[in-house]
């Protein structure tokens, strides 16, 4: 459960820093990702705006009991350090492999961009932040589901350390398999959005994104990026090209 005592000062800092985007959220007018004239991306944005307008910003995903925990396949990238993997990144892959061999003792998460004070956090730093454990359903875009227990630091607690600027609107994530993705501040500050380092009571396994993966419980599974490397806060939508979703032909917002 969330440790509010340790979270409160941080949350206040983030929330006051984000008064600007909170105001925008109230009017339901979120900045749209670019569509490049693609009708499907226009439809994605329609769904995004409609959900942001109609759904409460802080409604919680259902949490389950330990007895509900199920088998869960590991799909997509299951080892960024494996040169035979289809998603192997020639620059990041060897770096990841070295970190993994060292038990991720040298893993650092840089939080930078539109923030007052960029920070670099190790695994132990993350574990010292507020800790939240939640048993939630992972909903894969392919059509399958699984229930697992996730333990991590609420993203909002980690962001609070870096103090996002008032104009910050998006949080971008870079992963060791080369993927880059982002979520808006509504999802970033959601209490169930975690930087998860634990799964089912132990360290996050390799196939599920070790050492740290994102959990975005109100969106489809692929938004919960695995193998997190770096966080970049931005005032506007950043299109990372082919490393991101939109130019690969996928919906950026996927709450449906």
């Amino acid at each position: 459960m969330m440790d509010d005592a340790r979270l409160t000062p941080g949350r206040r800092a983030v929330l006051s820093g984000l008064a600007g985007s909170a105001g925008l959220a109230l009017t339901g007018c979120q900045e749209n990702p670019p569509t490049y004239g693609n009708l499907l991306r226009i439809g994605d944005n329609l769904t995004y705006q409609a959900q942001r307008l109609l759904l409460p910003a802080r409604s919680l995903a259902r949490e389950y009991d330990r007895s509900d925990i199920s088998n869960m396949p590991a799909v997509g990238t299951t080892d960024p350090g494996d040169p035979k993997s289809e998603t192997f990144d020639p620059q990041l892959g060897p770096l990841y492999d070295r970190l993994r061999r060292g038990g991720f003792a040298d893993w650092r998460l840089l939080i930078e961009g539109s923030v007052a004070r960029p920070v670099s956090l190790g695994l132990e730093d993350l574990k010292r932040l507020a800790r939240r454990t939640q048993i939630t359903r992972h909903t894969c875009e392919e059509g399958w589901t699984a229930i697992a227990e996730w333990t991590g630091a609420p993203l909002m607690a980690a962001l609070a350390l870096a103090r996002p600027n008032a104009g910050a609107r998006f949080v971008n994530f870079m992963a060791y398999d080369g993927q880059i993705d982002s979520i808006d501040m509504i999802d970033a500050l959601h209490p169930q959005t975690l930087l998860a380092y634990g799964m089912n009571g132990r360290d996050l396994p390799l196939g599920h994104g070790a050492p740290v993966r994102l959990r975005v419980e109100r969106q489809i599974g692929y938004k919960s990026l695995k193998f997190i490397r770096k966080i970049f806060v931005s005032d506007h939508f950043v299109d990372p090209g082919k490393a991101g979703l939109i130019q690969s032909g996928w919906a950026w917002y996927n709450g449906i």
């Binding site: 226009i42 439809g43 994605d44 769904t47 875009e141 392919e142 690969s248 996928w250 919906a251 449906i256």
Partner: peptide, 13 residues
């Protein structure tokens, strides 16, 4: 699903 899901949800409107 890249196009199929987005087409499905656009048409659903």
């Amino acid at each position: 699903n890249s196009w199929a899901r987005s087409l499905h949800f656009l048409t659903a409107w």
